[in-house]
Amino acid sequence: MSVIIYAENWDGKFKKLTFELASYGAKVAEMLGTSLVAVSIGKVEESELKELGKYGVQKVVATDHELLRPLDSKAYTSLIAQVAQKEDAKVIVMASNNAGKSIAPRLSVKMKAALGSGVNKLPLSTEPFVVSKKVFSGNAFAHLSLNTEVKIITLMQNSFDLVAKPVEPEIEQFSVKLDAADVKTQVKEVQKHDGKMLLTDAEIVISGGRGMKSAENWQPILELAELLNAATACSRPVSDEGWRPHEEHTGQTGKIIAPNLYFAIGISGATQHLAGVSSSKYIVAINSDKSAPIFEAAQYGIVGDAMKVLPKLVEAVKEIKTK
């Protein structure tokens, strides 16, 4: 019996997100009185695989195949299902991100295992196995009972703190037999925004709305973001106007994020916007309209003109950085 996590890598490296999954998986394994196994797909050095042991992973099943370099959801599903069977997995945990969202549902059908997606905390109970997840775009949480022997969970990013639990993991190389016909997805072209802090990885996000008035006014946001090692985001009207790229749109139909700190600057706080950011641990609102709904979602607020407030914030951050 075991709990399995899918330990995704990015160019051979794990991220904080991977260790969140390990910490979560270790806790679930403890609740079930079983051990934690990680599955790694792709080219990852043994020293990096061992990093998973810091967060309670007792065994790593690692596999690499030339054909599995691009994400092919069908081939990945089949591989993870094989490992799950071999390790007698009772619970399989993945991230609620691009990869997890494309693999977990397929795995659910393949293994006839109930899926709880976008789970935000530890299972509420194990008999029956009930998880909590956000529904209605953040307007409620549901308790979902997973009624099959094997359960699959996708975990929301930044919803579970890292818990150090150092062990020396066993590393097992798992070889897969694949031929080109098994992998249907062919990548023709890749466009990467190199060196840019990813919105979904950032612990601090600085976001601007229509209240910023024009693309030229973004300079102080970019400066603040740079100083705080933050990612930049925007509301829907801003990306629709072309002031900022579409990848920065946070909100119901854009990116759903959960940073530790979210600055909403010149954003009124419509339901659709809040749906994308309501899981942020802290929200700071800066808006000239005192009655803007964003102040109901925020813990800290400044009623004022963003163009006057932002330079003061930049100065204040510079000051604490030099201390």
Binding site: A104, P105, S108, G118, V135, F136, Q252
Partner: peptide, 15 residues
């Protein structure tokens, strides 16, 4: 936008 599952499309493909 109701149950925010992101499940149906990939499940359908596997079926």
């Amino acid at each position: 936008s109701d149950y925010n599952g992101s499940n149906v499309g990939s499940m359908l493909a596997e079926f």
